[in-house]
Every structure is written in C-alpha cells, then in structure tokens.
Simulated scan of single mutants.
Amino acid sequence: MTLPQEVRLSEWNLPDTEVCSAAVRLVLDVSLPVIANHTVRSYLFARELAAARGVRDYDDEVVFLTCILHDLGVTALGGGDQRFEVDGADAAVRFLREHDVAEDRARTVWEGIALHTSLGLVHRFGTEQAVSFSGISLDIDGAEKESLPAGFVERVHAAWPRQDLGFAIADLIAGGIAANPLKAPPFTFPAHLHELLNGSSLTFFDVVRNSGWGDEPVDA
C-alpha cells in the first residue's frame, strides 16, 4: 500500500519546523504531483550530495525551503509576466514573509530559486544556494548520482515517483510561455524550451538586427 505523501515525509527526516511544514502543505496544494515529488527529491539529493562533498556548514532549513518552493513558478500561484524562475522566487518570498521568516534568509531562498537554472552563476552567491542547486539539477540531469549512497536513488524514486519529470516540466514551462510570451526573455532557459516545444524564439542575431544600429555580419 502506498502511503500518502504527508505520512511519507516523516520517514525521511525532513525539517519539520512550522514554516517547513507549511511550505510542504502549500506545494502539495498548488502543484501537480510530478512537481511536488520533484521538489522533495531535490532536497533529499541536495542533502546527500552535500554530505558526500563534506559540506556541513549550511542552513538546512533554508535549503529545504529553497528546494520545496523552487517550482512555484509553474503553478497558478506563481503565475506572472516574468520567467518562471523569478515568478516562483517572488511567490516563495511572499509566502516566507507571511510566515515571518527573516528578510536575509528569505533573500537567500529567493536567490536559490531565481538562479536554479543558472549553471556557473548560482554557486557564487552562497553555500545554501549552491547546495540547493546541486540537488535540483541532479534530479533533472542525473549528474553526480554516483556520489549518492548505494540504493538511495531507488528508495527515493519508490517514495517520490518521477512521472517523467524532465519532459513534464518542460511542457508546463512551454505551455506558460505559449499563453504569455513575456515569460521567455531572449537567451534564457525558458526561451530555449519555448523554441524546442513551441517552435519559435528570438535569437541574439534577431535582437541585433532589430536594434536599429545597422550592424552587419563581420567577414570571416
């Protein structure tokens, strides 16, 4: 028998402070199961990767909140006119302020969420942002899964099924952009998915040609 998600949470030693519990309830309420499962796996992978790397001096609650809330931008709660990462980060901070989380900690969560697709950038912002990014990324690209304890991935997937996450979340992001093209600023990850799934996206050369400066291609 499959246990309900609320029960399974206690089996994984997840942070159970008032704000963490409220965050889980929020995500379960507003997200599709494929997204809710992804957010929990992201935290579990982040925590194990940090341990494997010997990284222990970080705020575990902040990492948990970052991972759990990081995809609010693909829900109705996080809808807006910005790329989904930023809409989601803004929604997360609104939630954290409602629960009296200190502004500096809320800002760290905002950065971790807003930058969670920014390879090569997020690690420069802080340990919590980097730890969160590693877990979120691993659940998409599988990088460094060999660093996790034997059997850990299988146990996580049994409790929190993938449901074809990679393709499912791409469809959600691209669907949001089809309804509101403002959500795909040129050259961003959302714009990349927009081109893959919706068939059109501005290129850098489109921007240059439309600038009005008259720049021409340089001869090789």
Rank of each mutant, 00 (worst) to 15 (best):
F167P: 07
V27H: 06
F84G: 01
L65Y: 05
R47G: 02
G54N: 11
G166L: 13
E111L: 13
D171V: 13
V55G: 08
A106F: 01
A89K: 10
L69K: 09
L32A: 15
G120Q: 09
V122Y: 04
A159C: 10
P33Y: 00
F152G: 00
A130N: 07
G54L: 10
I140L: 15
T127D: 02
Y58V: 01
L49D: 03
L28W: 11
A174T: 12
A114P: 05
G80P: 07
I35L: 07
A150D: 13
G73C: 05
L65M: 09
L69M: 11
A106M: 05
P33L: 03
W110M: 12
A158G: 12
S132F: 08
L172I: 11
V131S: 01
A91V: 12
I173S: 02
A114I: 09
F45L: 08
F152C: 03
L138V: 13
C67S: 12
L28N: 13
A106T: 07
R162E: 08
F95D: 11
A51L: 14
H38A: 12
E61I: 06
F167S: 14
E103P: 08
L77Q: 13
L148K: 10
A76F: 03
I136F: 06
H123I: 05
V153Q: 10
L32D: 10
A89T: 05
E103S: 15
E111Y: 05
L119R: 11
V55L: 12
G78F: 00
A50Y: 09
A46F: 02
D90T: 15
A102T: 15
S147W: 14
D164P: 02
G135V: 10
V93K: 09
V153K: 10
L148H: 11
L138E: 01
I173W: 01
G73I: 06
T127Q: 08
F125P: 04
H99P: 04
R155D: 13
Y43W: 13
D100S: 12
V93Y: 02
L44I: 06
H116F: 12
L172H: 04
P149Y: 10
Q163G: 12
N37M: 04
V27E: 02
A92Y: 01
R53D: 11
L28Q: 14
G88F: 00
I173N: 02
R124K: 15
G151K: 01
I68Y: 00
E103Y: 06
G135W: 08
A159F: 06
E146K: 15
A150L: 01
D29V: 04
F84R: 07
R162I: 06
T117F: 10
S137D: 04
G142D: 03
A102R: 15
D164L: 05
N37T: 09
V34Y: 01
L72G: 03
A91Y: 02
L138K: 06
V153M: 13
P33N: 10
A168D: 12
T39M: 08
Q129E: 11
V153E: 14
D87L: 05
I68F: 00
R41V: 00
P161V: 07
E48H: 08
S31K: 03
